[in-house]
Amino acid sequence: MSDEPKRKTAKAAKPAKSGTSATSGKTATSQSPKSPATARTSGRTPVGAARGRVDVLKTYKLFIGGKFPRSESGRVYEVTDSEGNWLANAPLSSRKDARDAVAAARKAFGGWSGATAYNRGQILYRVAEMLEGRREQFTAEVAAGEGLSKAAASAQVDAAIDRWVWYAGWSDKIAQVAGGANPVAGPFFNLSTPEPTGVVAVLAPQDSSFLGLASVLAPVVVTGNTALVVPSERAPLPALSLSEVLATSDVPGGVVNVLSGRTREVGSALAAHQDVNALDLAGTSGDPELAKELETAAAENLKRVLRPDEDGTDWSADPGTSRLLAFLETKTVWHPIGV
């Protein structure tokens, strides 16, 4: 695609950490904006650069069934920072990858939904602990992908981790808030309980690659659903790195599957898949045509569809319980009372 050899390691001496942002003290504009050095400093922490060391770059991969495969299609796409500098080649998921991920998510559903709420809560809290330890990495990825200053990116990461902790705590509380006894007019015990909907396809927000991602993913899995995540198309790296955190936090394989690529392509495959139970269209915000197309496809097996907010979503605001409730079913059990 590109006619210049972008994937070069940093030879440049300037370890300008805040790279592309206008707020940075030492901006990269003193160099060619397209230079490899700029790309390196904006996207990946140039620890070795100052010492003339060649960094070891990460190969970003999909996350399916607890494993890290490349796309079966062999395709990748170029992920750049907000100024167009190369950051990584992300896997460009195919429809086959989507189907594999659905199979993995379905397989994981019984165990995850059957785990105790306390267990799920602890595992998701563990995820937050692991995220905390990787704050720098996520901050760098968010800064590069969203064109934020380090401080702004750091605030996004903090909010995302806090949001994750908030949702983790809901695991053993939502049933008490959303369920309860019903005083029927007869000699019956009658109890309504929320249960996870099943396999949920989540098109994560395009504009908030990590806080937005955490805000849509955590409420889906905390209640026992398993998820297929299509991360921000332009900035998928935080989601792909989150996979590594999930893989080391006792989250069973298949509970979360991450499919980077074209939102339209992967989203269409998931919206039409007959073994997917629900669809979060957050990632179609600003593209009503795509949202309509996917909701129409989802009707074929009556997926529960959460539409994007018409006027965008403030991911930093208190989310309330609506995203939790959107992917729950209410089961009501009756039994006679007698002796």
Partner: peptide
Amino acid sequence: AGVVWANTFNKFDPTSPFGGYKE
């Protein structure tokens, strides 16, 4: 299933939520 009747069947009440899973 959205409604499970144990040792009874087809009981309805205004206070009791009714509705389905899946299709």
